[in-house]
Amino acid sequence: MSDKKKSLTVFRSDRHEDVAAIIASALIVVVVLTYMAFIVPSVGIKAPQDGKLVEIFVAEGAEVKKGDPLYSLEVVKKKWVNNVMEEKVAVESFTAKANGKVLKVSGKPGDAVKKGKQAIVVMEHEKGTLP
């Protein structure tokens, strides 16, 4: 019965719990990285923030290298400058993070895109790289 008093955690002690948390996060990292590098067949590249598609630089079937621009987006950039929120509209281009092949281009210039919602470009990447 005296064990009961220490059983806030499911582990033997809080030290064990700390170690378990470290192992758990390491596991998550390994799983996510392996999944992205080797398992996932294709990746839909989504807009990192809300904006309007300006241009798409790649065509379906094209081979791209890491660092090649994929598309550009007109976004509202918010930045604190001298304690004032400065908002300006800018066109930013986004690049490929891994070598691969473009499978499909689903967006077209002029489309309004929402952050993390629809894929603009679907890419197949080289195994072992992180898209």
Partner: peptide, 11 residues
């Protein structure tokens, strides 16, 4: 976050 042995010592 009451980490490590402090909580055990307390209990």
């Amino acid at each position: 976050l009451s980490g490590c042995n402090s909580r055990i010592g307390f209990l």
